[in-house]
């Protein structure tokens, strides 16, 4: 081995590496540094023995301490259940209105409600509860079956056309066209009539022709003025909210085919306190207030 280059100032060998004319001296490392290295090696071995470490073909080395993150999560969940148990008991014993008036309990109910809503209701009503075509928006002030706390609670419990003996929506919207109760021209005229009801411009001749048809076929549920009926789940035709769309095609299609929404009953699936929490959550998101309640059903168009 040839003699390596030596730094003339210090007399120490260089490593031979050079950056912009600066050379690295091959100084020895401190001895304690070496011991730190050995210490780390020893620690690694201890760790391998105690903790899960090495992957194998069919599993991994479990380690003597039996540590498992998965078991840790399960334990945390049990603890969470215990915590919820105490709060849940409070939910069970007080009324819906009392929950809403107790900020602490309301906050708890909102948390529970939010997670339950996300897991179960969001599929149809959307993650934020804004609904979709055919699935009611739960954030606004229009409620087919009532928007008070008790109404919401009842709807979740028994569902709509769900097969539950007390299910809501005992009436249905007939398929006037498909079942040949009305002919195409009549349905067309009715469409114009409904458009006019919500305060928009419509063909006055068609509206005139449909007046009698509306009174005969529709008014029994939707009311003479088209203001709807909460007890039957008949929507107001005078407002800005349209479950199946507001344009003429959508309205015509609904008169022709008469779609009827279904919502399952949740009584068997959720505990009573969960349904309470969910009701409080939905009520709060919708505005949770008197303004909405006053506006439900029958409110006139602006």
């Amino acid at each position: 081995m040839s003699e390596r280059e030596r730094d003339e100032h210090s007399g120490i060998e260089t490593t031979g590496h050079e950056w912009d004319g600066i050379k690295e001296l091959d100084n020895p490392l401190p001895r304690w540094w070496l011991w730190v290295f050995y210490g780390s090696v020893a620690w690694a071995i201890v760790y391998w023995v105690l903790m899960p470490a090495w992957p194998g073909l069919t599993g991994y080395t479990k380690g003597l301490r039996g540590h498992s993150d998965r078991a840790g999560v399960a334990q945390e969940l049990t603890k969470l259940d215990a915590v919820r148990g105490a709060q849940g008991a409070r939910l069970k014993s007080v009324s819906l209105q009392q929950i809403e008036q107790d900020p602490e309990l309301q906050a708890f109910a909102l948390q529970v409600g939010q997670s339950v809503f996300g897991d179960n209701c969001a599929t149809c009503h959307g993650a934020g509860g804004a609904g979709a075509k055919g699935y009611p928006n739960l954030r606004d002030d229009v409620w087919l079956y009532g928007g008070t706390l008790d109404d919401i609670h009842r709807t979740i419990q028994v569902g709509i056309r769900s097969g539950h003996p007390q299910a809501r929506g005992e009436t249905v919207m007939p398929a006037f066209g498909r079942d040949r109760m009305l002919d195409q021209a009549q349905v067309q005229d009715l469409t114009e009539y409904v458009v006019a009801l919500s305060g928009r411009k419509a063909d006055t001749a068609a509206v005139g022709r449909a007046t009698q048809t509306f009174a005969d076929q529709c008014a029994s549920c939707h009311g003479a003025g088209g203001q709807g009926d909460l007890t039957k789940g008949a929507p107001s035709l005078t407002d800005a909210e349209w479950l199946y769309g507001s344009d003429r095609d959508s309205i015509r299609e609904q008169i022709w085919n008469g779609r009827n929404g279904v919502m399952p009953t949740w009584e068997a699936r959720f505990s009573p306190e969960t349904i309470k929490a969910l009701s409080v959550y939905i009520h709060a998101n919708a505005g949770g207030g008197e303004e909405e309640v006053a506006a439900i059903g029958g409110a006139t168009a602006r």
Partner: peptide, 18 residues
């Protein structure tokens, strides 16, 4: 501001943001 839904239309056509 509420992100989902970003806005809500009320029965009278008024727009509400939370």
């Amino acid at each position: 501001r509420d992100r989902n839904p970003t806005f809500v239309r009320l029965h009278d056509g008024a727009i509400r943001n939370g």
